[in-house]
Design a protein around this nucleic acid. Structure first.
Lengths: 158, 158
DNA sequence: TTTCAATTCATACTTTTGAGTGATTTTGCC
DNA sequence: GGCAAAATCACTCAAAAGTATGAATTGAAA
């Protein structure tokens, strides 16, 4: 993805280090002449080199190494959210249709067939048919049993 | 907590660096004599110093940098355990009797009045009376509504 | 286009539920 | 023992729920 750019980015420090070294050696060569004259400056000269290259090393290390990270996992206790996922497998297994599921939800909410009919703008007979088919598919004999089973199977929200 | 130990731990590298520097300078001083004899070895000598101190710098940087700590919050869902405490306050407030509560539980479990009657060894009429009184006290109009409300109020187990 | 499942609705019938009233028995408590 | 609440049961009537059967419509897939 970022191969070419990344390569230069990762090695630019090495390259610049090479340049720096070359320049420094050239500089030192020139200083060598002076060194002959001012002989006792050798220790200062050495110390300067030492400090310089130590700094260079530090700088290099800091630039080139990926930052050390320690991942500390902190447990955060949260109340189990209302992540209700309708058990679609069970719904499919039982062969419950969309409309039937709608009716089932309203039944479980405590609505009468008439109220459900009004709510869905269909006749009472239609709801009776749906609920009857529903009970057959769910193998129950009443709306209360259907509600109970539906909640246990996670077909509808508790 | 770890003050004294930590101080030494944090500065031991600096101390050892100081020692190393002293030894190296002493070593270089000795090499200086040789350097006078073998004059053309200066470049090698400089290069050695450069490499040495660069290494030292790198080593120092790696040792002295404290690792970054990243705290990752890990969510732990605490499943509300089955610590079901019947909401007795609510039961008392509604004026629900022991027998009525029993009937309510069976209604919510999906049993018909006849089944409840058989289970409790009383007549169907008795259950009807109980459930009727129950609905009055709970201000609901059907067993499904009673079930729904009872579960919401934690009167019965969900 | 045909086919099939889903949705809709009706009619008739049975069962269950629920409301209302009244009555008897049981039980806990002062 | 007597009282009050709780529990029991019966009877009637009405409403709601549930079953069974049949049929029209629709929409999507074969």
């Amino acid at each position: 993805m970022t191969g070419a750019v990344n390569f230069f980015s990762k090695h630019k420090h090495v390259i610049s280090y090479g340049f720096s070294l070359a320049i420094l050696l050239f500089l030192l060569k020139w200083l060598e002449i002076r060194f002959v004259i001012i002989n006792y400056a050798l220790e200062i000269y050495i110390a300067a080199i030492a400090i310089l290259f130590t700094s260079l090393g530090i700088w290099l290390a800091l630039k080139l190494t990926s930052p050390k990270t320690i991942v500390v996992e902190k447990e955060v206790f949260t109340q189990s959210e209302n992540t209700f996922f309708s058990n679609e497998k069970e719904i499919e297994k039982l062969g419950i249709s969309k409309r039937e599921l709608e009716v089932l939800q309203l039944i479980s909410a405590g609505f009468s067939n008439q109220e459900i009919a009004d709510h869905l703008f269909v006749s009472l007979n239609t709801i009776k048919t749906h609920s009857s088919n529903l009970f057959g598919k769910m193998e129950v004999k009443s709306r209360t049993q259907a509600t109970d089973k539906a909640k246990r199977l996670n077909i509808i929200e508790k």
